[in-house]
Amino acid sequence: MASNLAGLGVSSGAIVGDITAFGELRRRLMDLGFTPGAAVRCLFAAPSGDPRAYMIRDSVIALRGSDASLVTLAG
């Protein structure tokens, strides 16, 4: 089981645990719906493997790996 969003494989789903980012990025991630308990699924990756696209609260949001690693997963 991946411990953060960056480790979540394409086509896998998980539940958001916590946001370990600070400041502006934390605020933005949470505004987009990455809040504790939210269901998230990794849909596809860019040709270089980074960024990846995630389904969060019925929207598709692309995150760079360095930012996705700041979203921990529950369980």
């Binding site: 980012a21 990025l25 933005r28 991630l29 987009l32 960024p51 696209a53 929207s59 598709v60 949001i61 692309a62 995150l63 760079r64 360095s66 930012d67």
Partner: peptide
Amino acid sequence: SSPTLELPP
């Protein structure tokens, strides 16, 4: 920085 990009349907 850390851009977040929405991919609309």
